[in-house]
Amino acid sequence: MPVFSFFLSFFLSSQRKKWGIFFFSFLLPATRAMITHVPKGHNVTGVQFSSDKSNWSELYIRITAAVNEPDVQQQSSELRDSCKEFMDKIESFHKIVSSLIEVMDSVAKEVQKEKMKAIGSRNLLMSVTKQREEEQIQLMALITEKKMQMERLRIQHEALLKHERDQNDFIEQFMLQK
């Protein structure tokens, strides 16, 4: 079931909207002329404008010619609907995929960042071990120093204890002699 559709597209800059409309009205007879070429038995059922309204740069004019064959017409309209549906689906699919890609991209970025962080902290960790080792050495040195000091004090303490013992012995002896 033939459906004739004419797609005319005009590329107009948004600044020239008015011009576009004017141009469009100017073109109408030409369209009509085109419609005259519609074969016999077919009626022009309507002219459809399809455009991305947000952007006037592109303007579609769809002229549908309905054929006076009802079942064909029906079928074609069905086909048209299914096509439309298909188109919508594709479009939504495309949207979904692109959003997915976007998400994936951001995830990848995150992952990269985390990876860098991990490497950094691993290095840091390794250096911390080294640092700790160094600190340990330093602390050990300090400990040996303190130990030596303690040894000195211990010897002093012992000497003092001995001194005390001697003094006590002396006192005892002295008392006994008396």
Binding site: M148, E151, R152, L153, R154, I155, Q156, A159, L160, K162, H163, D166, Q167, F170
Partner: peptide, 10 residues
Amino acid sequence: RSEGSLVSTA
């Protein structure tokens, strides 16, 4: 003492 500790004797 030579290693630094103080010792006293009576």
